[in-house]
């Protein structure tokens, strides 16, 4: 009951946000220099007079701006994101086709970064004054400062070109015709480099926040109580310190979801991973702005889904929230 109410509430909020993004997109097209129709058509489509005429008609571009806005919003509300002239496909179909790959990549990277980050962070917190603790933090800082796309490129050079351990491009071996478990294995092999390079930056963030948050929690009075009980240090670390330290980490993870979708654009571009990030790059190269805005809308929707999930997880982790909501 409580969760149903909560989810409804969050969904309503999500709809409002998405609606605002549609409006934002609309005004962006109109603020841009040049003919809105040409922008929507993309560079290639703009040379096709017939296509431009169709676009003008459909979006009512010769009518007052509020009518145009209405056309645009009602179009997207009925899941009509327009047509990509260059790719000769409806934008929605293009995006839906590419979405699973992105979900696989970001999902894997998300879990990987969170798990490893929390592990590294708690190790660093437990070894505060030791060399190993400082080493973890130095590494985290290094990963944090490294440009994502550059790590990806260097990983290709090292692991694909020189060592030839892992495939450098794509999501599966083209033309191999693999099925079943062999296919899963093949995809997994292709996934390792993109997911790891995408995860590194976020792992660094989670490591830092975990350590800070655990050190903060270890100063709390209830830790002294736990020690006064005669509990073992290990139990105190896990049950009292880590559990309390997790709360800010979950909050941060929710906030970082958006960054991760952004990071996927770079990773997918470098590894030719067939997701919406790569599609965004293609749209960018072809000046296909209607497709670009469609992807932008979907990436925001993806972030909202991530946010709702972290919100639910937070509520599971903190008994105090139930009372408040």
């Amino acid at each position: 009951m409580l969760y149903a109410r909560l989810i409804t509430m969050r969904l309503m909020k999500a709809i409002v946000v998405l609606f605002l993004i549609i409006i934002f997109n609309f005004f962006l097209i109109h603020m841009a220099p040049g003919d809105p129709a040409a922008i929507l058509a993309g560079e290639a489509g703009a040379t096709d007079k017939e296509f431009l005429r169709q676009l003008r008609e459909r979006f009512g571009l010769d009518q007052p701006i509020y009518v145009q806005l209405w056309h645009y919003v009602s179009g997207i509300a009925t899941l009509d994101f327009g047509y990509s002239y260059r790719q000769q496909m409806p934008v929605l179909d293009l995006i839906l086709q590419r979405l699973p790959a992105t979900l696989l990549l970001t999902g894997t990277a998300f879990v990987l970064s969170l798990a490893l980050g929390i592990l590294a962070g708690s190790l660093a917190a437990a070894r505060v004054k030791k060399v190993s603790g400082s080493l973890i933090m130095a590494l985290a800082l290094l990963f944090y400062a490294t440009p994502l796309f550059w790590v990806a490129l260097m990983a290709v050079v090292l692991f694909s070109v020189y060592l030839d351990w892992l495939p450098a491009y794509g999501m599966y071996t083209v033309g191999a015709g693999l099925e079943g478990f062999a296919l899963v294995l093949d995809v997994a092999k292709h996934l390792i480099l993109p997911a790891t390079t995408l995860a590194l930056f976020f792992m660094a963030i989670y490591t830092r926040i975990t350590r800070a948050s655990m050190l903060e929690a270890s100063q709390q009075d209830y830790v002294k109580t736990a020690r006064a009980k005669g509990l073992k240090d290990r139990v105190i670390q896990r049950r009292h310190i880590l559990r309390n330290a997790l709360l800010p980490i979950i909050t941060l993870a929710g906030l970082q979801a958006g960054q991760m979708v952004g990071g996927a654009i770079l990773t997918e571009t470098v590894f030719a991973w067939p997701g919406i990030g790569r599609l965004m790059y293609e749209a960018l190269m072809q000046r296909d702005y209607n497709l670009l805005l469609g992807i932008f809308f979907f990436s925001a929707a993806l972030v909202i889904v991530f946010n709702i999930v972290t919100d639910l997880v937070y509520r599971l982790a903190d008994p105090r929230i139930k009372e408040a909501s």
Binding site: V17, L20, I21, L28, I29, M31, A32, P33, I39, L255, G258, Q259, V261, G262, G263, I265, L266, M280, L284, R287, Y289, L292, L293, I295, F296, S299, A300, L302, V303, I304, N307
Partner: peptide, 20 residues
């Protein structure tokens, strides 16, 4: 919050692409 929900990098791309 609205601006925080929008994926940063994607927004930056869209803005720069459309503003030139």
């Amino acid at each position: 919050e609205f601006f925080q929900t929008i994926p940063n990098f994607a927004l930056a791309i869209v803005l720069v692409a459309i503003m030139q």
